[in-house]
Design a binder for these strands. Structure first.
Lengths: 232, 232
DNA sequence: ATCCAACGTTGCTCCAGATCAAACTCAGCG
DNA sequence: CGCTGAGTTTGATCTGGAGCAACGTTGGAT
């Protein structure tokens, strides 16, 4: 908190792209940096939205619990993205719980600065709209998948989304660069960890993916894309 | 198009609430009113977003088609709401197809006025955020339902959403005030028209709903709410 | 008045995937 | 270094609801 943040940290990120160094300086001076360990809750569903956030490093997921106690992962936030932006949705409380998936570095601003940011920096506003639009699009895709596709398709789509968002190229393929369990994947695709395990085993056998405990590497992305296609 | 629109038409609607009559006059002078017969497409998915719309009367639904040719209803727009607001999502093309469910009256503005509207009328901006937030919330709910609930729950939830949005009180209960088929309901809840038909028949037998061709009346809303609860 | 297409119902069969059960693997901790 | 609990695998069984088929109903077109 005492250490001063470097402007270059955020100047290249979409929300602040194109701002002068002095502007970025002013923005950073209002931000509180935080470190969240893996598994830590950053804010809870229903809590009054006092702050909005920028994920500098790590991975954060938005999730909710059903009346039953079942968890559903609604969205996964990649580094460089804004989150907790309740104001952009006309809300006063967070609509979901945000949890750090892996060790994460986050900047937090008091929500009272929101309107000011939106009005003063039109790049910030534009990027916010784009982010919201992107999320809406993802959710629409997911609804369509869950309404029409088989489990295997849904799992491929969920995995492809993660690859596109957080894939890291390695020698054998593209690796999801944060810890992910079968259970997580099942909560993203509306199935059970058992089914995910079976499907991944089958894929491993046919050489499409390679996986260890909490780690998945997609070896043949193209095959996965084919599997994700609605087939019938 | 030649007949002048009356200010009172829109002054009470959320997006324009609190504006002076003269301001509303100016806004209306830029609007093109349109009538769309039931079943008509207002704009198609992927088309360049040249206009944004306000639904004055009728019902419009946002839908998409899968690669398979299966249709999914993503959202239903009630009278008084803005739609086709691609700019609010940072998009240049409409993300879904908009179809009039029943005879609908719509105001259309050229999209170039969007930024101006957002900047000049903060009630308009606020209402836009709220609408987007509401839709996001609906989609999250739907994702959670489809991930965790049984068909009967999902159908009840879909029906309840329609009741809340477009229910009209009658002597026997609350009627959905636009034509709706079993097929429609199945496209809203990710199931088949056969299953919807069976479920509705069962509900009719137990007195929860009453239905005719293209018409559904919820007789015991409370029972429906109970059914919608995740149970197990 | 008749026809036809859209809409709705219902029985039967079948299977994808949930559920139940049990065992295995491994990372981290005392 | 052995223990424990989280994560994973795999088999066996069961079932919700899709798919298929056939028929019934109704409102609007001609």
């Amino acid at each position: 908190m005492s250490r001063q943040l470097d402007e270059s940290l955020v100047m290249s990120l979409p929300p602040f792209a194109g701002l002068a160094r002095a502007q970025v300086r002013a923005i950073l001076d209002e931000a509180a940096p935080h470190r969240h360990g893996a598994g830590t809750t950053i804010f809870a569903e229903g809590a009054s939205a006092m702050q909005f956030f920028l994920l500098l490093d790590g991975h954060v997921r938005a999730q909710r619990i059903t009346a039953n106690g079942e968890q559903v992962i609604l969205h996964q936030i990649p580094p460089g993205e804004l989150f907790g932006i309740a104001k952009a949705l006309g809300l006063d409380a967070y609509p979901a719980t945000a949890v750090a998936v892996s060790e994460s570095i986050v900047l937090a601003w008091p929500m009272r600065l929101w309107d000011d940011f939106m009005a003063r920096h039109d790049g910030f506003a534009r990027q916010t709209f784009r982010t919201v639009g992107q999320r809406m699009h993802d959710k629409n895709d997911r609804i369509m998948e869950m309404a029409t596709q088989q489990v295997e398709q849904r799992i491929s789509n969920a995995l492809l989304r993660l690859v596109n968002q957080s894939g890291r190229k390695t020698s054998i393929g593209i690796e999801i660069d944060f810890p992910i369990t079968r259970q997580d994947l099942s909560e993203m695709s509306g199935t059970t960890l058992h089914t995910v395990s079976r499907v991944l085993s089958a894929w491993e056998k046919s050489g499409i993916v390679q996986s260890e405990r909490k780690k998945i590497t997609v070896v043949q992305p193209h095959q996965l894309v084919l599997l994700a296609q609605p087939q019938k």
